[in-house]
């Protein structure tokens, strides 16, 4: 070790002036992640229906969607949405919409696979019993299969939410003002390279650790009702 490294002078004084940046960042991170996971859940469930459909063209559409999204990096998808969509649509969609859409569509592909596994894990006797009572396929799906599938996959969905919160840091590259972007801004404004990121790392950790614990409690509650 050199003397210079030992002499590193930690400087967290920026927190007084820039602390509010972090609060905005936390809010934006949680907002876009929560929205993306909720919309991703709806979209992902629909895609899982495509994947499980009896009609091969629908199955193909579902598979293509999942494979393309899973086969390309989120950061690339993000750029495509941010710069491609306005050209394609002919109007500006704004950074929030681009970020939200990219994250939703990305997350939906993973959620689709989670839901598909969850639906397939429900005993096939459940569908038969429902159909034998005169329920249509869609009524049986809503009343009987999905509630059970959803319960099966709740842990996996919680995990997906945690992943999305972390992945949302990528949104900073298009200037979306979430936590990582804010930390970067502080670095730029103060010329302190390390400490602002260290603080954001700590915030991410506390957020995600808290979420994991809450999800764990929720899971145990659900198990107790079994």
């Amino acid at each position: 070790m050199t003397a210079m490294e030992l002499a590193y002078h930690w400087d967290f004084s920026f927190l007084n002036e820039y602390g509010s940046y972090y609060w905005t960042g936390i809010r934006m991170t949680l907002e876009v992640s929560l929205l993306a996971v909720l919309s991703g859940l709806v979209l992902g469930t629909l895609v899982s229906f495509l994947r499980l459909s009896g009609l091969w063209p629908l199955r193909l559409i579902g598979s293509v969607y999942v494979e393309i999204i899973r086969g390309t990096p989120l950061i690339v998808q993000l750029f495509l949405f941010n710069y491609g969509l306005p050209i394609f649509l002919g109007f500006d969609i704004g950074i929030f919409t681009a970020a939200y859409l990219a994250l939703t569509i990305n997350s939906a592909a993973y959620i689709a696979e989670i839901m598909r596994a969850g639906i397939q894990a429900v005993d096939k006797g459940q569908m038969e019993a429902a159909r034998s009572l005169g329920m249509s396929r869609s009524l049986a799906m809503r009343q009987i299969i999905l509630p059970q599938a959803f319960k099966n996959v709740l842990p996996a969905l919680g995990n997906e939410f945690v992943v999305v919160v972390k992945e949302s840091s990528v949104l900073s590259v298009i200037g979306f003002a979430e936590l990582t972007y804010q930390a970067n801004s502080i670095r730029g404004a103060t010329f302190i390279s390390l400490e602002p990121m260290l603080v954001s790392a700590l915030i991410y950790f506390v957020l995600i650790f808290t979420m994991s614990k809450l999800l764990g409690i929720g899971e145990r509650r659900l198990k107790a009702s079994d």
């Binding site: 006797g125 038969e128 319960k151």
Partner: peptide
């Protein structure tokens, strides 16, 4: 009526 009952567990 089924061999495995197939009641709705939820």
């Amino acid at each position: 009526v089924f061999q495995q009952f197939n009641l709705f567990p939820h």
